[in-house]
Amino acid sequence: MSRYRGPRLRVTRRLGDLPGLTRKSARKAYPPGQHGQARKKKSEYALRLEEKQKLRYNYGLTERQLRNYVQKARRKTGSTGQVLLQLMEMRLDNTVFRLGLAPTIPAARQLVNHGHITINGKVLDIASYQVRTGDEIGVRDRDASRKLVEENLQYPGLSNIPAHLDFNKNKLVCKVTGVIDREWVALQINELMVVEYYSRLV
């Protein structure tokens, strides 16, 4: 299954605000489709599926990638839901987005894939790279890269930078000082429902 490339506002109308997917807001407050305005009581499965879809679309993952992340979170100590969110947030593309270097996570992924971002002084074009404590994220020392990032910094997707990222805007360098806390996760989601959804499948 490939990554979703369809209309993003359609997804936000269905699932609610997804800060990583788009900065636009839907004009219509009800879900898309012929029966969008007909409110129906959702089953327990539908609620869990909706929370899973929020996570998947916000971070731009395929179904297989998300399932692998859930399995990885289960193997680690601590609350599976919180560990899962930490794995999502510590991806390189999401970290670039949270620094304001790109307006959305898809834009941040493109920035990484095109070789504009460095990790510890080396160009890294793998968007799923897990950022670790002590890593130094920077912008490639090229005029094109710096100009692109400086333009994005004027209109960041999210205004607040998480506490675990020590960002120097003048030098365009960020030091990762730890792992993100749950309170800094911008996506409004019930991660326990995502874990429950996969408990029957994984």
Rank of each mutant, 00 (worst) to 15 (best):
G60E: 00
T62S: 14
R64P: 02
L66P: 00
Y69D: 06
Y69M: 07
V70H: 04
V70T: 05
K72V: 08
A73R: 01
K76I: 04
K76M: 13
K76A: 12
S79Y: 07
S79F: 10
T80E: 12
G81C: 03
G81Q: 02
Q82F: 08
V83Q: 04
L84T: 00
M90K: 06
R91D: 04
R91L: 04
L92T: 10
D93L: 10
D93A: 08
D93N: 09
D93G: 06
N94Q: 07
L99K: 09
L101F: 15
P103T: 06
P103E: 09
T104H: 05
I105C: 00
P106A: 01
P106F: 02
A107G: 05
Q110I: 03
L111D: 02
V112P: 00
N113W: 02
H114E: 10
G115N: 06
T118G: 01
I119D: 14
N120V: 04
N120C: 03
G121Q: 11
G121Y: 13
V123D: 05
L124M: 14
D125M: 14
D125G: 12
I126S: 09
I126L: 03
Y129F: 12
R132S: 13
R132G: 05
G134V: 04
D135Q: 09
I137H: 03
I137P: 04
G138D: 07
R140S: 09
D141A: 10
D141I: 09
D141K: 11
D141R: 14
D143K: 15
A144C: 06
S145F: 01
S145G: 06
K147H: 11
L148W: 09
L148C: 08
V149W: 11
V149R: 03
E150D: 13
E150T: 05
N152F: 11
N152T: 02
N152L: 08
L153T: 03
Q154M: 10
Q154C: 02
P156A: 05
F167N: 08
K169C: 07
L172D: 05
V173L: 15
C174H: 06
C174A: 15
V176Q: 10
V176G: 06
T177Y: 13
V179F: 04
I180K: 08
E183F: 10
L187A: 11
